[in-house]
Design a binder for these strands. Structure first.
Length: 442
RNA sequence: GUGGCUAUAGUGUAGCGGUAACACUAGAGGUUGUGGUCCUCUCAUCCAGGGUUCGAAUCCCUGUAGUCACCCCA
């Protein structure tokens, strides 16, 4: 026998394999073992959103490019260099959404949700696309789960959305995460502050790193979280936004913090927290994974904030809004590192073993019958020997094995084998469901 | 987008110029139709392409992918 086999192999060798096609750079398959974690994350998140009165919304992946240019901000990195944009055959300029909020806002306006009873609470989940350089926890297609509240100005809603985010992370069992919070004020006080900040930095310009010199021009708020030693020193003496908020913004922010205290949500006041999208006003926050030991410290799992100007900017009535989202991949990573016991344990009630064609046909019918009766059934119809089939039965931890051979197929009987004790009995095919139920109980 | 590192069976690793090793997983089998232990066998030409060499998985180049730092973000 072995000789024949070898000859066959020699003949196979010359066959040339076709070039395999890989995923597009930065894209990734999510396979069954991970799906288990994803389901866990998404189910819990959905549940909590529903409890909080949020309704699910799905918006298209493809939107007009202008939506993001206007919404996210022309000068942001996302719009400047990270969008998957293209022209359709019909000449429309479209973009695969780089984030979720803009699309939801568009939908709010387009569907006249301002006439619904306010506030309108929506949650969503789906793929986002950014043309970034891929790294761990950073893909070109990634998934976000997010929630938005429209039409409520009060600070209670800011607190509530943070509470919601916190609740989700708690529910998922993510312990060592922290909420970083800041207020970046309204356009008025922010612009005043920016001026103050640039003036301060202008005086110290020769003490800054190259990147920061660039930031000073382009995005002064970013100066504050440069990691260069010398810049950190300069930043330490810089004016802080929270000391320069206008009265309204200040009151609002204080009130948010009071709510959080009341809800006993721990947070870290982070004056240098700035978000990468233009539309934020007042409250901004991020959820960080406090990586213990050697983890990249700046892993933001999610974030959000208030964006009171966005609806109007995109052509709707002036409508205040708050939202948050988290990256499913990053949360999944974190969940995995927690070592939570989420392994999919395959446990079958019964496993079907067949010998011969006639038996195979019988077994397919039995399979159908058992499944209809909510019994977990496994089979390996492709396999031949009883030995290998029982091995498989053992691997999937089946409680019972149902064996149908030539003889049984003719007699209309089935052998039921208890996989733990090894006890067997022969029963009549007609009553198989009852017998299986009986054996499972015993 | 800039710079560094890496790339060997499904997974994790060894081999460091002379024609691929180990563990786990998976598949087949260990004489008649019975599993979980044990045993045997099978599965990679070393990411792709080119170059150096008598000879390369091992050196060089290019590409691709991953990874790390930066940029930025989820």
């Amino acid at each position: 026998m072995p000789r024949v086999k070898k000859e066959e192999q020699v003949e196979k060798k010359p066959r040339k394999k076709a070039k395999p096609i890989q995923t597009v750079k930065g894209m990734k398959d999510i396979l069954p073992p991970e799906q288990f974690i994803w389901d866990y994350i998404l189910h819990n998140s959905r549940k909590i959103c529903q409890d909080f009165g949020f309704g699910r919304i799905e918006t298209p992946i493809l939107e007009n490019t202008d939506l993001f240019k206007r919404g996210v901000g022309q000068a942001t990195d996302i719009v400047e260099k990270e969008m998957f944009s293209f022209e359709t055959q019909g000449g429309d300029n479209v973009t695969m959404r780089p984030e979720g909020t803009a699309g939801v806002v568009r939908s709010y306006i387009e569907n006249g949700m301002s006439r619904w009873s306010q506030p309108v609470r929506l949650y969503y989940e789906g793929s986002m696309f950014r043309y970034d350089k891929p790294q761990q926890g950073r893909f070109r297609e990634f998934h976000q789960f997010g929630a938005e509240v429209f039409g409520e100005e009060g600070s209670a809603i800011d607190a509530q959305i943070i509470y919601l985010a916190w609740k989700i992370f708690q529910k998922l069992g993510l312990r060592d995460v922290s909420i970083q919070i800041n207020s970046i004020g309204c356009p008025t006080c922010r612009n005043k502050y920016k001026k103050l900040l640039t003036d301060y930095y202008d005086m110290k310009i020769n003490k800054l790193c190259v990147d920061c010199k660039r930031r000073l021009e382009k995005n002064p708020m970013r100066l504050l979280d440069c990691k260069e030693e010398k810049c950190l020193q300069v930043a330490a003496g810089a004016p802080q936004i929270i000391d320069n908020l206008c009265d309204d913004c200040n009151t609002h922010f204080k009130s948010v913090l009071e709510f959080l205290d009341e809800l006993e949500i721990p947070y870290v006041l982070n004056p240098s927290l700035v978000r990468g999208l233009d539309y934020y006003t007042r409250t901004v926050f991020e959820i960080w994974a406090d990586g213990d030991e050697g983890e990249s410290r700046q892993a933001a799992l999610g974030g959000g904030g208030r964006y009171d100007g966005l609806v109007e900017l995109l052509g709707g009535e002036p409508t205040p809004a708050v939202g948050f989202s988290f990256g499913v991949e990053r949360v999944a990573d974190k969940v995995m590192k927690m070592g939570l016991d989420l392994e999919p344990k395959v446990v079958k009630d019964v496993f079907l073993v067949q010998l011969g064609d006639m038996a195979r046909k019988k077994v397919m019918k039995i399979f159908d019958k058992l499944v209809d009766n909510n019994i977990l059934v496994g089979e390996s119809l492709g396999k031949g020997s009883i030995k290998s089939q029982l091995r498989t039965a053992n691997k999937v931890r089946a409680k019972l094995a149902l064996i149908v051979g030539q003889k049984e197929a003719i007699d209309g009987t089935v052998i039921i084998r208890d996989m733990d004790s090894g006890m067997q009995e022969t029963v009549i095919l007609e009553n198989i469901v009852e017998d299986v139920r009986r054996m499972l109980k015993g």
